[in-house]
Design a protein around this nucleic acid. Sequence first.
DNA 1: CCAAAAGTGTTCGTTCTACACCCATGT
DNA 2: ACATGGGTGTAGAACGAACACTTTTGG
Lengths: 242, 242
Amino acid sequence: MKKAALNPHLSVDCVIFGYNDHSLSVLLVDREMPPAEKANSTYKDLKLPGGLIYNDELLIDAAARILEELTTLQGVKLNQFGVLDSLDRLSNEADRKWLEQTTGLTIDRVVSIAYYGIVSMKDLPESIPSAHWVDINNLDKLPFDHEKIICEALNVLRQHFKKEGLIFDILPEKFTIHQLQSTLAVFYGEKADSRNFRKKIKKMDFIVPLEEKQQNVAHKPAQLYRYDKRRFRQFSNNRINF
Amino acid sequence: MKKAALNPHLSVDCVIFGYNDHSLSVLLVDREMPPAEKANSTYKDLKLPGGLIYNDELLIDAAARILEELTTLQGVKLNQFGVLDSLDRLSNEADRKWLEQTTGLTIDRVVSIAYYGIVSMKDLPESIPSAHWVDINNLDKLPFDHEKIICEALNVLRQHFKKEGLIFDILPEKFTIHQLQSTLAVFYGEKADSRNFRKKIKKMDFIVPLEEKQQNVAHKPAQLYRYDKRRFRQFSNNRINF
DNA sequence: CCAAAAGTGTTCGTTCTACACCCATGT
DNA sequence: ACATGGGTGTAGAACGAACACTTTTGG
């Protein structure tokens, strides 16, 4: 029930990372094209979820809305990380026609603002209609500059883990050091020495031990910790040492 | 001689830092307003140089063009660092009218992409018509969110010094360690121990000693160095230790 | 001979790295 | 009893911080 019009010059694109215990994927959506065009395209018909914004809409709200429309995902925390303004983004005639057909507008120039988000694939239904998880290491050719965007998103995301404590957004409220370490490992693709890792963590006073341990696990139950955002903001002079 | 139209939805803003041996300033331009409005405004009539882009223009080209139009500065290397999309950017009626009058367009929503640049004030004419250098520590109230933008620009700039070797863009091709250190000091507002600084620098093999020394200086002539971009890209695993 | 910046080493504390074994629990 | 992850300590290397004096040049 939007009153404002679509803005034919501004779009958003979303890079949604999905992780589980072992792998990291990106969410891509199907692009429907007229069959004639389909034959011509050198690309797979997968793209990042994205689209035009409304004139009375914040970019981040547009990103959330479009993500929901295309993938049904809700409540994903989105972070802006880039701007795409090259003049040849629509140089593929099929791409432009597709946009004009799906929006009903005349499109000449679209600048796109890029967002990324992270979700746990385990918390989601097995499959999402008209969307697909693609492993970060198996990306095929994608339309536009979408590969570059994804790569850039991953870099920014890793920085945000360090600078903004973003990792704690995707951990449960109570977590073990092991969980923290192996979640990080998924995003960095490597696992460091766990003794040294523990030493580091214990020095970070924004990671607070609870008076509580794991229960019902088939091994020595682990100490649980929580993340104290306030202490992080105050104390840390920026940049965690992960 | 542009054929394309102004894009009423997209603008750029430029934060141009000017430095000399001792201080760091930002370039602001006068904003002409009808006298009636002028009386109402709580702001000084200074703003960041910025304006709408043309539809066939890259954002960075627009930024360079607008910077030149408003300040006559040419050839400043510009770096994108932010996006401004809040809905109340034009909630000050005077601001919106000013935009509509100067562009001749109906303006409802403008998203702005922010760029920063750095120039040596010594290399420029004493005064620039209708523009002013304002010391970074003496910023008065500015329209919109321009104060926040400037602050953000400075943070990003400091990061780019470390991550992208940006500092070497503003040093002469042949420079001394002292020059490097005191230039950094202007942007960080502090100067560290020079013995330790030298030790650090000597370990960076992308800072290469030349077979050449200063001449005609009233003190022991200093070793000159150059910056080797290729070695920096290859070797440095990102982030100089300044 | 003075002013001005160049250049140089050592010590001490901190942090980083590499590395191997026993512990508590559920099945 | 075994499988699973939880949890611990130490030694050596690398790094960062603090610190003061001599050198070379031009004026």
